[in-house]
């Protein structure tokens, strides 16, 4: 490590371990101030209302009474097999997309962080999926994967990888993998940019010192890059996980949950409950369940990650 560690003021280091020092609290509040009002009004309040909605029988309708019904919605949900089925699918989707996205994006970010020629162009091109509005992304992929006149099937057939066209989005065995590939495609730029920004923040002198010690590329990656990136990796993977679990627009346009419910994600399920059938209370209860499960999940993830810090 660099020599700067030695100069760390002991008072500061000790103080930051104890939570809630009054002076720091006051200073922190100042920094929070500009965000506070809009966030309370437009995020915290609607969120609390949304969460509370799960304990009511709120339904769409003009002048419909809403009653507090305690845990009735949750009791009903417990027996809703379709909802739990969608959870299972959602879990497969979330984990596959997040992991693939991370691995692919890390590889790309590392490549783009080297001094290759044309890397400026490459960096911009790598952001393409991000620059496209989701409506377009979904429709475009539907056409790319089209069994009759989509280029993907055309290419596969000309390479003799398959002898008959595959309807990727309509076939029971390929639908989920196909939407996962599209999910990875859409989310890669975001993850790549974040990791790249993290890589750029790593102090070069660390590598130079390691190179002097004769450490190879793999060694440097494992003992410098990864530990230095840790906070960013944790942040982006947990966010990716949440977003992927919650995403539904893409899959909605690609398959609408079909074929045979093979791609019915939990969010799609809750969305239908609220917007198609008008059961706001029940849909909010589903949202509450998702919040709890994701938070438990993340707590485990973050805890084990953060523990390796010590």
């Amino acid at each position: 490590m660099s020599t700067a560690t030695l100069t760390a003021a002991p008072e500061q280091a000790g103080g930051s371990k104890r939570p809630g020092r009054p002076k720091q609290n006051r200073e922190a509040i100042f920094l929070f101030l500009p965000a506070l009002l809009p966030v309370l009004l437009l995020s915290v309040y609607p969120l609390l209302r949304g969460i509370a909605l799960g304990f009511t029988d709120a339904r769409a309708g003009l002048n419909v009474d809403t009653n507090f019904i305690g845990f009735d919605n949750f009791a009903k949900l417990l027996h809703n097999e379709l909802f739990w089925d969608s959870f299972r699918i959602g879990l497969i989707w979330t984990l596959s997309v997040t992991i693939l996205q991370f691995v692919a994006a890390l590889g790309l970010a590392l490549l783009l962080n080297t001094n290759l020629k044309f890397r400026g162009v490459a960096r911009t091109l790598a952001l393409i999926p991000w620059a496209m509005p989701p409506v377009v992304v979904a429709i475009m992929w539907r056409l790319l994967l089209h069994p009759t006149n989509g280029p993907v099937n055309e290419i596969l057939q000309s390479l003799h990888l398959t002898d008959h066209p595959i309807n990727f989005l309509g076939d029971f065995s390929t639908a989920l993998p196909a939407v996962i590939v599209v999910g990875v495609w859409v989310g890669m730029p975001m993850t790549t940019v974040t990791l790249l920004a993290g890589l750029q923040g790593i102090d070069r002198s660390l590598y130079e010192a390691a190179a002097v010690d004769g450490a190879g590329a793999w060694h440097q990656f494992w003992y410098i890059t990864l530990p230095q990136l840790r906070t960013v990796i944790i942040a982006i993977t947990s966010l990716d996980m949440i977003w992927n679990f919650n995403s539904f627009g893409l899959v909605y346009v690609l398959t609408a949950g079909g074929p045979g419910g093979k791609t019915m994600l939990p969010m799609l399920f809750a969305y239908n409950e609220a917007f198609r059938y008008g059961n706001f209370g029940m849909a909010a209860a589903m949202g509450d369940v998702m919040v709890v499960i994701i938070i438990v999940f993340l707590a485990f993830y973050l805890r084990s990650r953060l523990r390796s810090e010590a």
Partner: peptide
């Protein structure tokens, strides 16, 4: 965390009523 996890579609309506 909660704001990222809770289905945004359910927040639209209260949000609308505030705005």
């Amino acid at each position: 965390l909660v704001s990222q996890v809770f289905p945004v579609i359910l927040i639209v309506i209260p949000l609308f009523l505030i705005l």
